[in-house]
Amino acid sequence: MKDAFQLKTDLTFLNHGSFGACPKPVFENFQDFQREMEQDPVYFIQKKFAMHLAKAKEALATFINCNVNDFIFTPNPTVGVNTIMRSLNLQEGDEILATNHEYGAMDRTWNFYCKKSGAKYVRQPITLPIISKEQIIEEFWQGVSAKTKIIFLNQISSTTALIFPVKEICEKARELGITTIIDGAHVPGHIELDIKALQPDYYTGTLHKWMLAPKGSSFLYVRKELQNQLDPLVVSWGYDSLAPSESPFLDLHEYQGTNDNAAYLCTPAVIGFLHQHNWVQKSDAAKKMVLQNYPRFCALLNSNPIAPLSAEFFGQMASIPVRTSKPEELKDLLFDKYKIQIPVMLLNNEVYLRYSINAYNSQADLDVLYGALADIIQTTTIIEV
């Protein structure tokens, strides 16, 4: 499948998880919308945009199994979560329960809003290595208190690449009357997402990662009972609309003037590409490759798995602990000398090497990585084994 993408041929690309990679036909559809808009911007924005948006939303609603009027498109999950946060009306002493595996931008955003409100962001430690799903659940709920108002949880961790038991946590949160905000940035197109089955209060995910959409395409789902409580980040024509729809939620959040919405509009092409190329099967093959290679990288780096090697905890990417005091230097060396694009990330005072596998990857790509790491171990002191 590598010919279907625009990735450099001399690059070993093992970092789909950061920003994705868009197939050529989807990117062409994206540019077609941009060209159509430029041919008559007024007509496109005022007359055709709503029609294209409706088709895009219908396609995505079917793909993630939710009502078409219960979500909006956003450029990324950070925008979605910021939209939620500014409307939560947090009070001094309120607590937000998360884990110590959340995305760094989200940690920073919660810290920002907590500083303004006096609320407390609780990063509950989840011990590595993971032993079982039950261990995660038990450790997570040790962080709850009578002051817990919000549960914020990534479904797949960015740095550790671990899949978290979000469904079970959402179920208990509903019993306790605690609001749930789920960061599913890595989920759509990666593992199954069924919003109606999950029943979160809020859920945000990207299309431009594992669904292969152009950059800047994500969504924010909001449970219907909470939609009228959500203020827009930007107030525009949807406020006191001259032609209001049945949903003030959509009026306030969907129409923001001259944003470039082409990435959203090609959602039908995105989903069409996935179906046309049997992407579920390709994803399954990638997941098997991730698990099959994990033990040999652990052996090379003198490391241990951070969770049982199964689909319960790993998808199309995996993180391996690596002992180094120079993570940025290691990342730059892998790119500059060996032409390997791969993240080396720091979390909770540990460093992780995370490889992502998609249909354009092959075993040869992981062999290149293995050879590069072996060479670095032999010729430098950057990696300690």
Rank of each mutant, 00 (worst) to 15 (best):
D3I: 07
Q6A: 05
L7T: 06
K8R: 15
D10T: 14
T12C: 10
T12N: 08
F13V: 05
H16F: 09
G20N: 14
F27E: 04
F27L: 15
D32L: 14
Y43V: 09
F44Q: 06
K48D: 13
M51L: 12
H52M: 05
P75V: 04
N76Q: 04
T78M: 06
R86A: 02
D94I: 06
L97C: 10
A98V: 13
T109K: 07
K116P: 01
G118Q: 10
K120F: 15
V122C: 11
Q124V: 10
Q124I: 08
T127Q: 13
P129H: 08
E134D: 07
E134R: 08
Q135F: 05
I137C: 08
E138S: 09
G143D: 08
K149R: 15
I150Y: 13
N154F: 01
T160F: 01
A161T: 06
L162G: 03
P165V: 11
V166T: 14
K167R: 13
I169K: 05
C170A: 09
E171C: 07
E171R: 14
G177V: 12
D183H: 11
H190Q: 15
L198R: 04
Q199E: 08
P200D: 05
H208Y: 13
H208A: 02
L212H: 14
L212A: 03
G216I: 04
F219I: 13
L220V: 06
L220C: 05
K224H: 10
E225R: 03
E225S: 03
E225N: 03
L226G: 00
Q227L: 00
P232R: 00
L233D: 00
W237P: 00
S247H: 05
D251Q: 01
E254Q: 03
T258F: 11
D260E: 14
L265V: 01
V270K: 02
V270D: 01
I271Q: 03
G272E: 15
A285G: 03
I306S: 04
I306C: 02
F313K: 05
S319C: 12
S325L: 12
K326M: 14
E328N: 12
E328W: 09
K331E: 15
D332R: 13
L333I: 10
F335K: 12
F335G: 04
D336H: 11
Y338R: 01
Y360L: 08
Q363R: 09
D367I: 13
V368Q: 15
A372Y: 11
A374V: 04
D375Q: 10
I376H: 03
I377N: 04
T379R: 08
T381E: 09
